[in-house]
C-alpha cells in the first residue's frame, strides 16, 4: 500500500498538504511538519501589503470568516528571509502567489521557479480580500467589471491569461487555486487546464459577513471576509465532483476538511490530494491524524493506492 501521489512533476509521499495561510513553521513545536505531503506557504505578492484593519477573524457556526487582506512582506523578503528559516522543512514547499495583472504573476513565477527550495507554485486566483486594484483592472483588459470588486477566478479569460503568464514564466508544477464564488466552477477549471495548469485546487473561501447587532456594525474591519471550515464542506465536495467530470488534470480538494473521513470523501469525489486549512487552528495535529486515518481506511478497504480511490464514488 502506498499513499504517494503525483501532481504534475511533483511527487508527494502522501496526499495531505497544509493549505495556504493556515499553517507555518510556528506549528513546528506542536507537529512534525515533515510528515505532511507538502506545505503551501502564505500567499505572497510582488510588493509588501499591510493587510486589513482588525478584527480580521471571527467564528461563525461550524466555520470562520477571515479578512487578512493578504498581509505579506513581498517577494524579496520571502526569498531572502522567509525561505531560509524553513530549512528544517524537508517536504516540498509550494509557493502561493497573487498579483494584480499577468505581468506581476509572470514575474513572481519566474523568480520563484529559480528559487531552489520551491517545488511548485500555487496561483491564488481566488483571494476575495485582495481584489484587483484599479491599476490592475486596466492592465487586464479582457475583463468585465461590475460594481463589486471581482476576482480573477470569476472570469474565464482572466484566469486563462494569468495561468498562461505563469506557465510561460516557470517550468515548475503550476496549480491554479479556484474560487467558489462563481456560478460554474467547471468553466474556470477548464480555462485553467487549457492555459497549461498542471492541477487545480479548490476551493478557496466563500465571501460572507457577520454583524454585531449591539454596535450595528459589521464584525470584520473589512466588512466582508472569506468563510471556511466545516460549514463549506458540502459545497466544496459538490464542486470537486463537478470539476472531476470536466477536467483531466489532478484536482486538489480543499474546504472544511477536519478529519480523515472528510479527506476520503473528497478523494472519492475526484480529488487526487487534499489540503487542510482551518482545521489546523482547531487542532494543529489534524493533518497528521488525517494521514494516519487515511492509511487505516485504505488497509481496511484493501486499497493499494490513492489513485484507486480518486473519483471512485459509486452512482
Amino acid at each position: 500500500m502506498t499513499l504517494e501521489v503525483r501532481i504534475g512533476k511533483l511527487r508527494l509521499k502522501n496526499p495531505v498538504m497544509a493549505a495556504s495561510g493556515t499553517f507555518g513553521p510556528e506549528y513546528g513545536e506542536l507537529v512534525d511538519i515533515n510528515k505532511l505531503g507538502a506545505y503551501i506557504a502564505k500567499t505572497i505578492t510582488l510588493n509588501e501589503r499591510v493587510g486589513n484593519p482588525p478584527p480580521r477573524v471571527v467564528d461563525t457556526p461550524s466555520g470562520m470568516l477571515n479578512a487578512i487582506g493578504l498581509e505579506n512582506k513581498g517577494l524579496d523578503d520571502f526569498v531572502k528571509n522567509k525561505l531560509p528559516k524553513l530549512k528544517n522543512i524537508k517536504i516540498p514547499i509550494i509557493a502561493s502567489i497573487a498579483g494584480v495583472n499577468a505581468a506581476e504573476f509572470g514575474k513572481l513565477a519566474k523568480v520563484l521557479s529559480r528559487t531552489e527550495r520551491i517545488a511548485a507554485i500555487e496561483i491564488n486566483l481566488s483571494c476575495p480580500n485582495a481584489p484587483y486594484s484599479p491599476r490592475g483592472r486596466r492592465a487586464c483588459p479582457n475583463v468585465q467589471h461590475g460594481k463589486r470588486d471581482f476576482l480573477i477566478a470569476q472570469n474565464e479569460s482572466a484566469t486563462r491569461q494569468i495561468v498562461e503568464a505563469a506557465r510561460k514564466a516557470a517550468s515548475l508544477t503550476i496549480i491554479a487555486k479556484l474560487s467558489p464564488n462563481v456560478t460554474d466552477i467547471t468553466r474556470i477549471a477548464k480555462a485553467a487546464e487549457e492555459a497549461g495548469a498542471d492541477a487545480v485546487s479548490l476551493i478557496n473561501t466563500f465571501i460572507g459577513m457577520a454583524v454585531d447587532i449591539e454596535t450595528k456594525r459589521p464584525v470584520l474591519g473589512n466588512v466582508t471576509g472569506g468563510l471556511s471550515g466545516p460549514a463549506i464542506k458540502p459545497i466544496a465536495l459538490r464542486m470537486v465532483r463537478e470539476t472531476y467530470e470536466k477536467v483531466k488534470i489532478p484536482i486538489i480538494g480543499i474546504g472544511g476538511i477536519m478529519d480523515y473521513k472528510d479527506a476520503v470523501e473528497f478523494i472519492l469525489c475526484g480529488a487526487s490530494a487534499i489540503q487542510v486549512g482551518t482545521a489546523n487552528f482547531v487542532n494543529p495535529r489534524a493533518s497528521i491524524e488525517i494521514i494516519e486515518g487515511v492509511k487505516k481506511y485504505m488497509a481496511k478497504h484493501k486499497i493499494s493506492g490513492i489513485k484507486e480511490l480518486t473519483g471512485a464514488l459509486r452512482k
Binding site: G21, T22, G24, E26, Y27, P53, P54, V57, F281
Partner: peptide, 8 residues
C-alpha cells in the same frame, strides 16, 4: 501562534 495573521 502567529501563522494566520488574524490578530493585528
Amino acid at each position: 501562534v502567529g501563522v494566520c495573521l488574524g490578530c493585528p
